[in-house]
Computed example of a mutant assay.
Amino acid sequence: MWISATCLLNFNIPVATPFIFMLRPRSGWQQWVGREQYLLAPSVPTVEFTDPFGNLCQRLVAPAGQFSVQTSFEVETAEFSDAAPGAPFVEVQQLPEDTLPFLLPSRYCESDRFSRLAQSIVAGCLPGYDQCSAIVDYVRGTTTYMPGAGQQIVSACEVNMMPQAVCRDMAHLGIACCRALSIPARMVVGYLENLQPMDLHAWFEAYVGGRWYTFDPTQDNLRGGRIAVAYGRDAADVAIYTQFGDPVDLLQMDVSVARLSGAQL
């Protein structure tokens, strides 16, 4: 299926301010970027680089005054996310090297503090995919998804004591529990078709059965229609923008996602 996504960010900049944006999806085996547009107003020189996780990052200095970033994409992606009950656990010594950073504790995913809880959650499950599914059920069963409930980023330990959380924080808890079982897990930020209310979305992927699989504690079923924009160890690695220096005001953020028919491509 093909879907289009747009994101508009409108800032009030008090003084010239350095930014790093992470707004461009990249093509890969799970998605293909057919068209894209990236507009800055006013236009300023921009340098793009790839971070250690393969994310496309745009570096610029925004001038004082009103400044906006508008992106739009048309991406071919799966209508349904793959599920693989029974996919086996991969022994650490057999893991690809690029998955190893996603085994370690990180700022918001304190996996070293979840060993006992994770073991109790997955008791009786086959090692691998089924353990990840049990973890998702635990997160969904103990924490209510509440969009807009938290502007401050919280860690997995904090989320585990909260009755409600946003998608980002629920992903942190799922990631920490997976890593506690030596299953590589990474955060993903991007777009999800039919998300209500519409916004950028966060979920996680776990490496089992020789590949990455999608898990989303906020959704009752494993829906597709996703565009991944950024991957990282946790929210600290996948911010859609990072500004340096004096605070700036984000005046507006509008996100839209729509399915395209073949005739529109």
Rank of each mutant, 00 (worst) to 15 (best):
residue 149 A to C: 15
residue 126 L to N: 11
residue 254 D to C: 11
residue 101 P to V: 03
residue 85 P to H: 00
residue 244 F to S: 08
residue 18 P to N: 06
residue 238 V to Q: 06
residue 254 D to L: 14
residue 130 D to Q: 15
residue 38 Y to R: 01
residue 154 V to F: 11
residue 72 S to T: 09
residue 205 E to D: 13
residue 175 I to C: 05
residue 209 G to K: 02
residue 11 F to Y: 15
residue 12 N to C: 00
residue 91 E to I: 04
residue 12 N to V: 02
residue 251 L to M: 11
residue 143 T to D: 01
residue 215 F to N: 02
residue 145 Y to F: 15
residue 109 C to L: 07
residue 229 V to Y: 07
residue 203 W to N: 07
residue 170 M to T: 14
residue 202 A to D: 07
residue 166 V to S: 14
residue 128 G to Q: 08
residue 81 S to K: 01
residue 61 V to T: 15
residue 127 P to H: 07
residue 3 I to P: 00
residue 233 R to S: 00
residue 225 G to V: 06
residue 187 M to P: 00
residue 200 L to Q: 07
residue 209 G to R: 02
residue 50 T to D: 06
residue 247 P to V: 05
residue 101 P to K: 10
residue 138 Y to V: 09
residue 212 W to D: 04
residue 85 P to Y: 00
residue 214 T to Y: 01
residue 104 L to G: 00
residue 193 E to T: 06
residue 121 I to R: 12
residue 4 S to H: 04
residue 21 F to I: 04
residue 68 S to K: 01
residue 85 P to F: 00
residue 30 Q to G: 03
residue 182 S to M: 13
residue 221 N to H: 05
residue 31 Q to A: 06
residue 127 P to F: 08
residue 181 L to W: 09
residue 262 G to K: 05
residue 168 R to K: 10
residue 104 L to A: 14
residue 170 M to A: 09
residue 23 L to Q: 07
residue 44 V to P: 04
residue 47 V to L: 11
residue 47 V to H: 14
residue 136 V to D: 12
residue 219 Q to R: 15
residue 165 A to L: 12
residue 259 R to K: 14
residue 12 N to E: 08
residue 173 L to M: 14
residue 183 I to P: 01
residue 177 C to D: 10
residue 253 M to R: 14
residue 125 C to I: 04
residue 121 I to G: 05
residue 28 G to E: 05
residue 181 L to M: 08
residue 192 L to V: 13
residue 128 G to F: 08
residue 64 A to P: 12
residue 264 Q to M: 15
residue 196 Q to Y: 12
residue 135 I to K: 15
residue 185 A to N: 05
residue 264 Q to D: 14
residue 28 G to Q: 06
residue 210 G to C: 06
residue 244 F to L: 10
residue 49 F to I: 06
residue 179 R to F: 00
residue 34 G to A: 09
residue 228 A to D: 13
residue 141 G to D: 14
residue 192 L to Y: 02
residue 229 V to E: 11
residue 60 L to N: 04
residue 108 Y to Q: 08
residue 63 P to K: 04
residue 224 G to P: 10
residue 204 F to R: 01
residue 11 F to C: 02
residue 172 H to N: 09
residue 215 F to G: 02
residue 29 W to L: 14
residue 18 P to Y: 00
residue 147 P to Q: 13
residue 133 S to M: 14
residue 196 Q to K: 03
residue 24 R to W: 05
residue 8 L to E: 05
residue 25 P to Q: 11
residue 31 Q to V: 11
residue 160 N to F: 03
residue 100 L to W: 15
